[in-house]
Design a protein around this nucleic acid. Structure first.
Length: 404
DNA sequence: TCTGGGGTCCTAGGACCC
DNA sequence: TCTGGGGTCCTAGGACCC
């Protein structure tokens, strides 16, 4: 049976929340940015986009395009709350909801559509509800799989509905650019363009064999995408999928080669990662550090752990040991710590007294820090360090899980 | 004032074991 | 002395997404 899938995509989400909450910003070109001095544009308002301001630009670039632009520092908790409110609205229409990111949702309405009339009526009702209850605009794409629903929501932007069906897909795809397909990024687009392929219509003309020869397995995927084939189901909240890795990174205000400073940052990052592991009841079997040099050269080094752990000190000691083995070639701009090979914690109590003490120390620190939002308790070597206010990542999830 | 942060998936090469 | 081959795990890098 043909499925009916909706893709809900919030319009300029972070910027719209800020404009809604501060009337002085309404109708003006604004951009939400991080708190770090070396931040980029996280979310430009539509007024700013008209000047050419885009996500990931530096503030400087944005100001050159739009001198009157107003920068607003991101307030993560507000966007997280708005996301949970949107989810509440969507749940009235179907339980089959996939939270793709903080401002994107896939809905499988195949089974519930008959209760509300039609896909178009549901899309209209969702948009109206979100607008009336939350004062925010959403665009909705309607189609028969996720790939096409997502494509359609882009066509619907801003603040509209677009239905992509067998009746119009050939016409729409004929002149659409290949990069409009989710999964074709900058590199693949460049390679296709070099082959003389600019539009999805042209990509459709290529034989799967030829694409496979050039792109390998991905060639067949490209062929399917160009023909609107996508078999991925909507993965409802909380089902099966598990988190594969948990990590944090920070770009410093100033590049540094100071070993002591780098170690302290590693401890801070390890603490953040450890706390999240413990909160999720997970233990990790592998620690990876990410380094980015002044020149922007970025690389990772990882090391397997002898035993799985969620302990900050063990994560930190592994991370520091990796770092000490690296012969730093340039001042460091960014440092990251990521834990992977995750599995559920089964037995927190250890045979060793020292491990037990550590477990209790971690638990107590987590408890206090969760109560007081910002880190209230931390290891002594972190005292006096600059505070890093985190900008919420667009991949943030209301339940700490992201389904793919 | 160049260039954030958090993820997933895939590939390729090497180590290691039987 | 002429040294296969299959399976699995680990590591690093890259593409892509929001």
């Amino acid at each position: 049976m043909k499925k009916v899938i909706l893709h809900i995509d919030m319009d300029a989400f972070f910027a719209s929340v800020e404009q809604r909450d501060n009337p002085a910003l309404a109708g003006r070109p604004i951009a939400v940015i991080g708190s770090n001095q070396r931040t980029v544009i996280v979310s430009p308002s539509y007024e700013a986009r008209r000047f050419g301001v885009k996500t990931s630009m530096t503030r400087h670039q944005a100001m050159l395009l739009c001198p009157e632009i107003v920068f607003v520092t991101a307030q993560s908790d507000k966007y997280a709350y708005a996301c949970s409110q949107i989810l509440d609205i969507l749940q009235a229409f179907t339980p089959d909801i996939e939270v793709y990111s903080i401002d994107e949702f896939f809905l499988d309405i195949t089974a519930t559509m008959h209760l509300f009339g039609s896909a178009k009526k549901i899309a209209e009702a969702i948009r109206l509800n979100i607008h009336d209850k939350l004062g925010l605009n959403a665009s909705v794409g309607v189609s028969y799989n996720k790939l096409l629903a997502k494509f359609a929501s882009d066509m619907a932007k801003p603040n509209g509905i677009f239905i992509l069906d067998r009746d119009n897909i050939d016409d729409v795809f004929e002149h659409a650019k290949v990069e409009q397909l989710c999964g074709i990024g900058k590199k693949t687009c460049q390679r296709l363009n070099l082959m003389g392929i600019q539009t999805i219509g042209q990509l459709r003309q290529c034989s799967p064999g030829m694409l496979e020869k050039v792109f390998g397995v991905n060639g067949l995927l490209l062929h399917n995408m160009a023909n609107g084939v996508d078999l991925m189901p909507v993965i409802p909240i909380g089902s099966s999928d598990h988190v594969k890795s948990i990590g944090h990174s920070m770009t410093f205000q100033q590049d540094t080669l100071q070993a002591k400073l780098l170690s302290r940052y590693l401890l801070e990052l390890s603490g953040m990662v450890g706390a999240r592991l413990r909160r999720s009841g997970l233990v990790s079997g592998c620690v990876r550090i990410t380094l980015r040099y002044k020149s922007f050269k970025t690389f990772t080094v990882q090391r397997a752990l002898p035993d799985r752990t969620d302990d900050t000190k063990k994560i930190y000691h592994t991370a520091r040991s990796i770092l000490s083995d690296i012969d730093l070639k340039e001042p460091v701009r960014l440092l990251g710590v990521t834990c992977s090979r995750l599995c559920q914690q089964s037995q927190p109590e250890s045979l060793f007294e020292q491990d037990n003490r550590r477990y209790k120390l971690n638990q107590t620190m987590d408890m206090i820090n969760e109560r007081f939002e910002c880190p209230a308790v931390c290891f002594a070597s972190l005292l006096g360090q600059q505070e890093h206010k985190k900008v919420i990542s667009p991949s943030w999830q209301p339940h700490g899980k992201r389904n793919y």
